[in-house]
Amino acid sequence: MQTQILGLVTPLMALFFAATFAVFWRAGRMRWHVLGFAISYVLFASGFLITHFLPGDAFYLFHATQAFYSLGVTLFLASVCERVGQRIHLGSLAIVYVTSALVLGLTVSLSDDVGPRLVIVNIGYGAMFAMGVTTLLAAQRRNLFDVAIIAVMAFQAADFFIRPTLTLLFEQSIPAAVYRDSIYYSLIGLVLGVKSIATAMVLIGATIAEWAITLRERSERDVLTGLRNRGSFEESMQNIFPRAQAEGYPLSLVVADIDHFKQVNDIWGHQAGDQAITGIGELIGNTVRGCDTAGRIGGEEFCIAVWNCENDPAHRLAERIRQAFAILKHPGLSDNIRLTASFGVATARDGESYEQLFARA
């Protein structure tokens, strides 16, 4: 009875962590990788429960647990890599799984000893985690949590490679019928529990940090357009202008204003005006580069700081946005009505402040 209860500790912890990540994802409206953490922990818990409740000598025991563990590891690694803008090669993970499954099937048919089976499946998991580590090392971002996640992943890989071999040195052979009474089974419950907690704590810390950053960014974003609000935009200019001048990069401003916007509100209503603002905001956000900074600085007024850009290409950028907005349909207006916007462009001169450049633009 005590063994049965202890065997449930690890899957119950995994389900608790799954629920925690699901709450973070839902409440914080976070990116899909957080939901991926939740689903992967559900798959891990399912694998634990299958191992615990299926007959120890069932020929399909290792196949079933390997399928759930492998799915969980794959989703887990994909989520961890997506978090830092990397994509793990799913084809390579599939090759590892298929190879391990084929060798496992051959081993099950040839011997009742679970020792070789343990080595095969664990080496497969170790190879998967090693792929995850190499993918994470290629990422550009590297804060404290990123380093901690890489360290945890490296520990996971090392454990899967080393633990089965060391354990089998003591037990030599483990018949399937007594698998749950073996030293290995007792050890794996403890090790998996510790690894599950350690990994979850690191990921929870990283998720909370991401949540805090997301909340801060949302406070700096305009609700209708998703661009920076005026305060955030002008604050960023206090950093961008000195940097451009110090590093010798040209910096241009593009200022845009929807024409006759008061008439839009008066004739079609403020909801139609909001939809027009949303339309040009999305258009600007989809057109500018990642190194540029765009914001809504007034009711219908927008500004783009174009990094490392002279006046002529900045003018062409403004013209592309102007032409695209002139043919854009707006849900709140009549089908035959189109809006236009006026644009100003200016490139910073030596020693010029943001206020001076904005006035020229």
Rank of each mutant, 00 (worst) to 15 (best):
A14K: 06
L15K: 03
F17K: 00
T20P: 03
A27Y: 12
G28E: 00
G28F: 03
R31H: 13
V34P: 00
L35A: 15
V42F: 04
L43K: 01
L49S: 10
D57L: 06
A58W: 14
Q66G: 12
A67E: 03
A67R: 04
F76K: 00
C81Y: 00
C81K: 00
V84K: 07
Q86G: 05
L93C: 06
L102V: 15
G105L: 06
L106P: 02
S109C: 08
S109H: 12
L110G: 09
P116Y: 03
V119P: 01
V119I: 15
I120Y: 00
I120V: 14
N122D: 11
N122V: 04
I123Y: 13
F129A: 04
M131N: 07
M131I: 08
L136V: 03
A139D: 01
Q140A: 14
R142Q: 12
V147L: 13
I150K: 09
Q156A: 12
A158P: 07
L166H: 08
L169K: 09
Q172E: 12
S173W: 11
R180C: 03
L187V: 13
L192E: 10
V194E: 04
K195F: 10
V202A: 09
T207I: 05
A212L: 13
A212Q: 15
A212F: 11
L215G: 07
R216C: 05
R218Y: 08
D222W: 12
L224A: 13
G226Q: 04
E235I: 08
M237W: 06
P242S: 09
A244Y: 05
Q245F: 10
V264E: 00
N265C: 06
Q275D: 10
T278P: 00
I284A: 01
I284Y: 02
I284K: 00
I284C: 03
T287R: 04
T287P: 01
T293H: 11
A294F: 04
A294E: 04
G298K: 11
G298T: 09
F302K: 04
F302Y: 06
D312T: 14
A314Q: 06
L317A: 02
L317E: 01
A318Y: 03
E319A: 12
L328N: 06
H330C: 05
D335H: 13
R338E: 09
T340M: 11
A341Q: 02
F343N: 04
A346F: 02
A348I: 14
R349E: 14
R349V: 08
G351A: 09
S353G: 12
Y354N: 07
Q356E: 15
